[in-house]
Amino acid sequence: MILKTRQRYKSDNGLAYIKSGSGSPIVLIHGVGLRAEAWLNQVPLLSQQHTVYAVDMPGHGESDLLANRDAGLDEYVDAIATWIKNEINAPVIMMGHSMGSMIALNFAIRYSHICSGVAALNSVYRRTFQAKQAVQQRALEMVSNTAVDNVTTPILRWFSKHPRGFEKQMADLCEQWLLAAPATGYARAYQIFSQNDGPEDDALKGLEMPAIFITGDGDANSSGHMSQCMAELCPNGRYAVIENSRHMVQMTHPDEVNQLLAEFVQQCGTHIRSQA
Rank of each mutant, 00 (worst) to 15 (best):
L3G: 00
R8S: 06
D12L: 09
N13L: 05
N13T: 09
G14V: 06
L15T: 02
A16T: 10
A16N: 06
S20M: 10
S20H: 12
S20G: 00
S20Y: 06
P25N: 02
I29L: 15
G31Q: 01
E37L: 00
E37Q: 03
W39C: 03
V43K: 00
P44T: 04
H50Q: 00
A54V: 05
G59H: 01
G61F: 01
E62C: 06
D64I: 01
R69D: 14
D70I: 00
A71P: 06
V77G: 01
V77Y: 03
D78R: 12
A79G: 05
I80V: 10
I80G: 07
I80Q: 13
K85S: 14
N86R: 14
P91M: 03
V92F: 07
V92H: 12
I93Q: 09
M95T: 09
G96A: 08
H97N: 13
H97D: 08
S98H: 09
S101R: 04
N106D: 12
I109E: 07
Y111E: 12
S112N: 13
C115D: 11
C115F: 07
G117E: 05
N122R: 06
R126L: 13
A131I: 09
A134F: 12
A139D: 11
L140K: 15
E141Q: 15
T146Y: 08
A147E: 15
A147D: 15
V148C: 13
N150S: 12
I155L: 15
I155K: 10
I155M: 15
K161E: 15
P163Q: 03
P163Y: 04
F166K: 07
K168I: 00
Q169I: 09
M170Q: 15
L173M: 10
E175Q: 14
L179D: 10
A180P: 04
T184I: 14
G185C: 02
A187R: 12
R188L: 14
A189T: 14
F193T: 13
S194D: 07
N196H: 15
G198Q: 03
L204K: 01
L207P: 10
L207D: 13
I214A: 02
T215A: 01
G224L: 04
S227Y: 07
Q228H: 02
C229H: 11
A231Q: 02
E232G: 02
L233K: 13
L233T: 07
N236K: 09
I242M: 02
E243N: 13
H247R: 04
M248D: 10
V249R: 01
Q250K: 04
T252K: 01
N258M: 04
E263H: 09
V265D: 06
Q266L: 13
Q267F: 05
Q267P: 00
Q267A: 09
T270D: 14
H271W: 15
H271N: 13
I272Q: 15
